[in-house]
Amino acid sequence: MKRVFAVLSLAFLLPFAAVHAADEIAFVDLQEVFKQFYKTQLAQDQIRQQADDIKLEREEIEAEVKVMKDEIEMLRADSRDETLSEEVRDNKRDQLEEKLVELQQKESDMAEFEKLRMEQMEQQNTRMTKKLFDEIHEVIIQHAKAQGYSAVVDRSAQSRIGTEMILYTSPKVDITADVLAVLNEGRQTSRETAPEFNVEDKGEE
Score class of each variant (00 low, 15 high):
Arg3Leu: 12
Phe5Cys: 04
Val7His: 07
Leu8Tyr: 04
Leu13Pro: 10
Ala17Pro: 00
Ala18Ser: 11
Ala18Gln: 12
Val19Thr: 12
Val19Lys: 14
His20Thr: 12
Ala21Asp: 07
Asp23Val: 07
Phe27Gly: 06
Phe27Tyr: 15
Gln31Pro: 00
Glu32Phe: 15
Val33Cys: 13
Phe34Ile: 00
Lys35Gly: 10
Lys35Cys: 06
Phe37Glu: 00
Phe37His: 02
Lys39Gln: 15
Lys39Glu: 08
Thr40Ser: 15
Thr40Glu: 10
Ala43Glu: 07
Asp45Leu: 04
Arg48His: 08
Asp52Ile: 07
Ile54Pro: 00
Lys55His: 13
Glu57Arg: 01
Ile61Gly: 01
Ile61Arg: 03
Glu62Asp: 03
Glu73Trp: 06
Leu75Gly: 05
Asp78Glu: 15
Glu82Pro: 09
Glu82Val: 11
Thr83Val: 07
Leu84Lys: 15
Ser85Gln: 10
Val88Asp: 08
Asp90Tyr: 05
Asn91Met: 10
Lys92Met: 13
Asp94Ile: 05
Asp94Thr: 06
Gln95Thr: 04
Gln95Cys: 05
Glu97Ala: 08
Glu97Arg: 09
Glu98Val: 04
Glu102Arg: 00
Leu103Phe: 08
Lys106Ala: 00
Lys106Thr: 01
Ser108Gly: 12
Asp109Phe: 14
Asp109Met: 14
Lys115Arg: 13
Lys115Asn: 05
Arg117Trp: 00
Arg117Ala: 00
Glu119Val: 03
Glu122Pro: 01
Gln123Gly: 07
Gln124Cys: 04
Thr126Val: 13
Arg127Gly: 01
Arg127Met: 02
Arg127Gln: 02
Met128Ala: 15
Lys130Thr: 06
Lys131Ile: 03
Phe133Met: 06
Glu135Thr: 08
Glu135Ser: 13
Ile136Ser: 04
His137Ala: 07
Ile140Phe: 08
Ile141Trp: 14
Ile141Phe: 13
Ile141Pro: 06
His143Ile: 09
Ala146Val: 04
Gln147Phe: 04
Gln147Cys: 05
Val152Cys: 03
Asp154Met: 07
Ala157Cys: 05
Ala157Arg: 12
Gln158Asn: 09
Ile161Lys: 13
Met165Cys: 10
Thr169Val: 11
Thr169Pro: 02
Ile175Trp: 00
Asp178Thr: 03
Val179Thr: 02
Leu180Gln: 01
Leu183Val: 07
Leu183Ala: 05
Thr189Leu: 07
Thr189Tyr: 08
Arg191Gln: 09
Glu192Cys: 03
Thr193Asp: 12
Asn198Gln: 09
Glu200Leu: 11
Asp201His: 13
Gly203Asn: 11
Glu204Ala: 08
Glu204Lys: 11
